[in-house]
Write a protein that binds this DNA or RNA. Structure first.
Lengths: 215, 215
DNA sequence: CAATTTCTACTGACCAGAAAGTAGAAAATG
DNA sequence: CATTTTCTACTTTCTGGTCAGTAGAAATTG
């Protein structure tokens, strides 16, 4: 049987190594063309190989997408852990996190992560994917909550703010061009300044934003 | 010939009316299933009709998507115009704009607009689509620039801030559920407070956010 | 106003091409 | 030569798009 070792008891270390190259090719292709527009032939071509070769390393197209996302997700989980034990304020932990989040999201696997739509994944994978994202989201909400507790963050709806943060930074992964003029660091600093202080010149108008719609 | 009058010299007002129903069905279907996963049979079913009937009102699938987006884009252009002549500060104009932007983006056609990826559109339509978005973006950047000029907005990179704003609000269209608990108004207020003042409790730490990564 | 023609809005049946996935043979590798 | 990896060739399914044809309303005609 040809299909003996594939996808089970991964043998040599070469297999894992090669699999990573396959994933990276898939990620780049998905990011460039979009998951649906990208065909497995495109992915294979990116790697200089033919389509069936891919099936030696992945069961299906959506598993490829899923696994690419997982790569980034795991990296992020790692970040979360060693950002958690530090005795920093909630705000500082949040800033720390998004600094790295931005970097991850602007790389191949990270872009794949934000590109992945749950509906494109078969139920088992989908569940894990949304679970992971949900966990990330909750962690950030916890940081915000902590920040409010320790006085570093002003009172706000943690849910809304967390989502807005993720959406803004995820966008980065879509438009940021590594070859572009400004280095990522600079843009992230700009984003963080925005996130921290907002855009209003002076914060002297309380919360009366809503009452200004009259005329 | 049966195909005489179709798509040319649109006759009665009934045609335009029906076309709008078709578009709305398409928008709902695309939003629910995602553009690629949604088939024209799905759209037809949503309308209680068969696929060829759709071709009586649109030339192709991507034209359907494009036109849905255009609906929202035109509404937005209208908003832009009558927000422009008012003698408000740049900040106030910006707030005004995004308040309505959020509302548009959370409706059928608006969701379609943010869902549309240029690469899914044939070149002629694509060009118009990105042109429209670019114009919107530039208008917002202009507002921010004005705000900096009139002192209502603090110094910042107008490009980065504009993109971050759009990304955050666009996200709203993806996750906001009209049946959900919080009314949109409330969430938008929360978003705007975030945008205006940021999340930091006090704005006393200058721009030294970057130097805190040491450990 | 009845008979005839024309038009609108739609259907059923179909097709060509594309793309995911598979089988089994053939290289490469050690 | 045995195992790992990749290829050629193929099947299946799906889906955007086409086309001929039609029920029924509307207009035309004598």
């Amino acid at each position: 049987m040809a299909g003996r070792g594939r996808l089970k008891a991964a043998p040599g270390p070469r297999y894992e190594q090669r699999k990573l190259e396959v994933l990276r090719a898939a990620a780049r292709t998905f990011n460039r063309l979009g998951y649906h527009a990208a065909t497995l032939d495109h992915v294979a071509e990116e790697l200089g190989v033919t389509k069936p070769a891919l099936y030696y390393y992945a069961r299906s197209k959506d598993e490829l997408l899923f696994t690419c996302g997982q790569m980034a997700a795991e990296a992020l989980r790692g970040v979360l852990e060693d950002a958690d034990d530090a005795d920093l304020s909630g705000l500082d932990r949040l800033v720390r996190f998004f600094r790295i989040y931005a970097e991850v999201i602007c790389q191949d696997f990270g872009r794949c992560l934000v590109l992945t739509e749950p509906r494109d994944l078969a139920p088992p994978l989908r569940q894990e994917h949304v679970g992971g994202r949900r966990a990330l989201n909750l962690s950030v909400r916890a940081m915000i909550g902590d920040g409010i507790g320790d006085g570093s963050i002003r009172r706000c709806d943690t849910r809304a703010v967390a989502i807005a943060l993720f959406d803004a930074f995820n966008g980065l992964g879509r438009w940021y061009d590594a070859e572009g003029a400004a280095p990522l660091q600079v843009i992230v600093d700009e984003y963080l300044a925005f996130v921290l202080h907002g855009i209003a010149a002076r914060a002297d108008d309380g919360g009366a934003v809503g009452s200004r719609m009259g005329t």
